[in-house]
Simulated assay, not measured.
Amino acid sequence: MLVGVSIIFLDVDGTLIDSFPGIRAGFLHALDSIGWPHPDEETIARIPGPPMEVTLRSLGMSEEQADDAFAAYLDHTHRGGWADATAFPGMLDLLRTWKEQGHTLCTATSKGEAFARRILEREGMIDHLDFLGAAQENGPRRAKKDVIDHVLEQTGLSGRSSDILMVGDRSHDIEGAAHFGIDTVAVTWGYGTPEEWAAARFTAHDPEELEGIVHDWHAGVLGNPARD
């Protein structure tokens, strides 16, 4: 079992990493590969977060079209699209601080595991993580709920939801964590909307505020039921 002063589950895209440029390019390449029209930029701005095949089907594609488009998206990502991403300012320092304080850090991302590993290694973040929890590129573990379940099982943290805080930027993070009774901090520097963040227990507008929320929650200052 992984044990630390606290346990923090972290989304990657939109929380640790600004991956929108690469995701956007891959998405448009996927659409072009099957001759599908591009949606407006407001729609494109919301594509990071859910599994890409879910996004493609939401446009009205058939299963066959979505499968072909998703294959094109993966090909684009494998050929270098994964690298068109950078760490959000302050997040590497925050990971380093949390580890120095003894916290347990696990990712819980819908990003494919190989892609997540590559970008987190390049940005110097992976050495601060206790467990890399990610989706399968081609497998059943795709939805955020399934990724969180995988992290809980692999780390021996099942049954400890009251000791865990999820940090993410989209409704999928909040809803996936809530399935296990895990509280969430929504971060506003990612790709979500105020309506999505409103469903989280807490909202952080910058890494400094996030650090304070995590500290106070695990100290019981914010009314964590596990510590009341």
Rank of each mutant, 00 (worst) to 15 (best):
R201Y: 03
W36E: 06
K144W: 03
A83W: 01
D13E: 13
E175I: 05
H215I: 10
E175K: 00
P89W: 10
G156F: 01
L210A: 06
G156S: 10
H29I: 01
G176R: 04
F27H: 00
D127E: 15
M52F: 00
L152N: 02
H172C: 04
D32L: 02
K145D: 04
T155K: 00
G156W: 04
L92Y: 04
E196N: 07
H172Y: 13
V147T: 05
P50C: 04
G176P: 00
E63L: 10
K145L: 05
A177E: 06
A114T: 13
I126G: 05
G35T: 06
L94T: 11
F131C: 05
A71N: 14
A69N: 12
R118C: 03
G22V: 09
L74F: 13
H76W: 15
L94F: 11
P194S: 08
R24T: 02
E42C: 06
L165T: 00
G22A: 06
I34S: 14
L31H: 04
H76K: 08
A85D: 01
A135D: 09
F180K: 07
L59H: 02
N138Q: 14
I44T: 10
P194N: 10
P39D: 12
G192E: 10
D130C: 06
L92M: 11
M52P: 01
F70R: 13
R118F: 06
F70Q: 12
V214P: 08
A71D: 15
D18V: 09
L95V: 08
L105I: 12
G212R: 14
A200R: 03
T43L: 12
P37L: 07
K144H: 01
H29A: 12
I148Y: 00
I126V: 15
W217D: 03
D11G: 13
F131Q: 04
A114W: 03
L120G: 14
A198D: 10
R57S: 04
I47A: 08
S33N: 08
G212H: 11
T107K: 09
L105N: 09
F88K: 01
Q154G: 03
V151W: 04
P48T: 05
H218D: 13
R46P: 03
T193D: 05
L222D: 08
G192K: 02
I47C: 11
D40A: 12
I126M: 15
R24M: 09
E209F: 04
L28V: 13
D40I: 06
D228S: 07
A198S: 15
G14L: 11
G22S: 09
L28E: 07
L105Q: 06
G133Q: 09
L210I: 03
F27I: 07
D130H: 14
F180I: 05
M91Y: 12
L105S: 02
A71H: 14
A71S: 15
E100Y: 01
S110L: 00
D32K: 14
A30W: 07
S19R: 09
A71M: 13
T86Q: 13
E137G: 05
V54E: 11
F9L: 15
G124H: 11
A134L: 08
E153W: 00
E64M: 11
G22H: 07
V185N: 03
